Amino acid sequence: MSTKDQILKKIEILLTNHFESPKNAFDFFDENGDKKLSKSEIKNLLQEAEISGFIRGIVASKLIEGYDVDGDQLISWSEFKTAIDEIAL
Rank of each mutant, 00 (worst) to 15 (best):
I13M: 08
I13D: 14
I13A: 12
I13F: 03
L15A: 04
T16C: 05
T16F: 03
T16Y: 00
T16N: 10
N17E: 15
H18R: 15
H18F: 14
F19Q: 03
F19R: 04
E20P: 01
P22F: 10
K23Y: 11
N24V: 11
N24W: 03
N24I: 13
N24T: 08
F26Q: 05
F26V: 07
F26S: 05
F26G: 05
E31W: 08
E31H: 14
N32G: 06
G33M: 09
D34T: 09
D34F: 01
K35V: 01
K36V: 07
K36W: 10
L37H: 05
S38G: 15
S38Y: 12
S38K: 06
S38T: 14
S38E: 13
E41A: 07
E41C: 12
K43P: 00
N44F: 09
N44T: 14
L45I: 07
L45Y: 11
L46R: 05
Q47K: 15
E48G: 01
A49G: 04
A49F: 00
E50G: 00
I51L: 08
I51A: 10
S52Q: 12
S52A: 11
F54M: 14
F54W: 03
F54E: 14
R56E: 12
R56A: 14
G57L: 10
G57P: 01
G57I: 06
I58R: 07
I58H: 00
I58Y: 00
V59P: 07
K62W: 10
K62T: 11
K62P: 02
K62M: 12
K62S: 11
L63F: 15
L63E: 06
I64L: 09
I64S: 07
I64M: 06
I64H: 10
E65S: 11
E65A: 08
E65Q: 14
G66S: 15
G66K: 15
Y67P: 02
Y67S: 00
Y67R: 02
D68Q: 07
D68C: 11
V69H: 11
V69Q: 15
V69N: 13
D70V: 01
G71T: 05
I75Q: 10
S76K: 00
W77E: 11
S78N: 05
E79K: 05
F80D: 00
K81W: 02
K81T: 00
K81F: 02
T82V: 11
T82H: 12
A83M: 15
A83I: 05
A83Y: 15
A83H: 06
I84N: 05
I84G: 01
I84H: 02
I84R: 04
D85N: 13
